[in-house]
């Protein structure tokens, strides 16, 4: 069974650019509010996202400038969902190497499985330096989505040609 892909889980309404935040708490709160506005979670989830960092530290800063904010599956999670916010000014999360944070990715996961495919695409997208630069420069949510869509199409295309190539050899 395949889980929903990233683009389906990331409508324009789940993306915000030039978001003001003074500190990491405000940044996660802003990201969580967008996630709640999409209907994926109740507002209670926002405090749970903040509590994770209070309890376990800034390990959620998964790459330079990028934080993946989420909490455990809980009754506050209605369905799998993402929110992406780009901060107007980067803020420190207290991470020794990856601070300051410019992009906060909110993740709502009702179980350990349904977000796997989208997360895999997200990881590949963020690993692509050109895509990451385009994302950080985007002025509108539509432009952010366009970067994700082009990347997903390129990936599908590469996989299709790989499949047909290996099919031709067998």
């Amino acid at each position: 069974m395949t889980s929903p892909d990233l683009l389906n889980l990331l409508p324009e309404s789940a993306i915000r650019v030039n978001v003001p935040a003074e500190n990491w708490r405000e940044a996660i709160r802003a990201c969580g509010e967008v996630l709640a506005a999409t209907g994926a979670v109740d507002p209670a989830y926002i405090d749970q996202m903040i509590a994770v960092v209070e309890e376990l530290g800034p390990y959620i800063v998964i790459a330079p400038g990028i934080a993946l904010a989420h909490a455990r599956p809980s009754p506050a999670v209605h369905r799998v969902g993402f929110s992406w916010i780009f901060l107007e000014h980067p803020v420190p999360f207290g991470h020794a190497e990856n601070d300051p944070v410019r992009m906060v990715i909110g993740l709502a996961a009702p179980d350990p499985q349904s977000h796997v495919q989208a997360l895999a695409t997200l990881a590949e997208l963020l690993a692509d330096e050109a895509c990451r630069a385009q994302l950080l420069q985007a002025d509108t949510p539509a432009e952010v989505r366009r970067v994700v869509r082009l990347f997903a199409e390129r990936k599908a295309c590469a996989e299709a040609s790989h499949l047909s190539a290996s099919g031709g050899n067998s």
Binding site: V52, I60, L68
Partner: peptide, 12 residues
């Protein structure tokens, strides 16, 4: 931390 975000990324 939770077994479903960064841990999944690490596994991949």
């Amino acid at each position: 931390g939770m077994g479903l975000g960064s841990g999944l990324l690490l596994r991949m």
